Amino acid sequence: MELKQVIIAHKAGDNHSKAWAQTCAKQLEALKCKVLMGPSGYKDNPYPVFLSSVSEKIDLAIILGGDGTVLAAARQLAPEGIPILAINIGGNLGFLTEPFELFKNTEQVWHRLQSDRYAMLQRMMLEARIFEGDRYAPRINSQRFYCLNEMCIKPASIDRMPTATLEIEVDGEIVDQYQGDGLLVATPTGSTCYTASANGPIIHPGIDAIAVTPICPLSLSSRPIIIPPGSVVDIWPLEDYELHTKLWTDASLATSIWPGQWISVRMANFMAKFIVLRENYSFYQTLRDKLQWAGTRIHFDNNHRGN
Rank of each mutant, 00 (worst) to 15 (best):
Q114C: 15
L126P: 00
W110M: 13
V175D: 09
G65A: 07
F145H: 08
T163A: 05
P214M: 01
E2T: 08
R75T: 07
M1H: 12
M124F: 01
I130Y: 11
S52I: 06
I210L: 03
R144V: 10
I263N: 01
S142N: 11
Q285S: 12
D289G: 09
I225G: 14
A119H: 02
H16F: 04
G306D: 13
I7L: 03
I227M: 12
G38Y: 02
K18Q: 14
E150D: 15
E173S: 07
K290N: 04
E239L: 09
S282V: 13
L277K: 08
R297K: 14
S219N: 07
T23P: 11
F283I: 15
A19K: 02
I202E: 06
I298H: 12
G13L: 14
T163V: 13
C24L: 08
V185I: 15
R129Q: 13
V265A: 00
I158T: 13
L96A: 08
A25H: 04
A12L: 09
A198C: 14
K273D: 08
G68D: 08
A156F: 10
V233W: 04
N45F: 03
W262A: 04
I225N: 13
P79L: 01
S264N: 11
P201L: 06
S222N: 10
T97N: 07
P99G: 13
M125R: 03
T249R: 06
K246S: 10
A137I: 12
R117A: 14
P217F: 01
A164I: 08
H204A: 14
G94A: 06
A61K: 02
C152F: 02
G295S: 06
K4E: 12
I210E: 02
G190W: 00
Y118K: 07
P237M: 01
L31D: 14
P228N: 08
A12Q: 10
I8F: 02
P79H: 05
H10C: 11
P46I: 03
V232C: 10
P224K: 01
I215Q: 05
G41Y: 04
P228Q: 09
L220Q: 13
G94W: 01
S197P: 07
Q143C: 12
L291P: 08
V233F: 02
T187Q: 00
L113H: 04
S53Y: 00
I63A: 00
A268E: 12
A61N: 05
C152Y: 00
I203A: 12
M271L: 10
E279D: 12
I158Y: 07
G172L: 15
A272P: 04
P48H: 04
D208Y: 03
S142H: 09
Q292G: 13
V212T: 14
E279H: 07
G260Q: 05
T195C: 15
G230P: 09
K273V: 02
I298L: 10
M125E: 05
L3K: 02
A294D: 09
A78S: 10
D234L: 11
C216A: 15
S221T: 11
H244C: 11
W262M: 03
S252Y: 09
E2V: 04
I215Y: 03
A9K: 02
L126G: 06
T296D: 12
S17H: 09
I203H: 00
Y194P: 11
I84A: 06
I210S: 05
W236M: 10
I7D: 02
M37C: 14
I140P: 13
G91I: 05
S142K: 05
T69N: 08
G68S: 10
I8E: 05
E107N: 15
S191W: 03
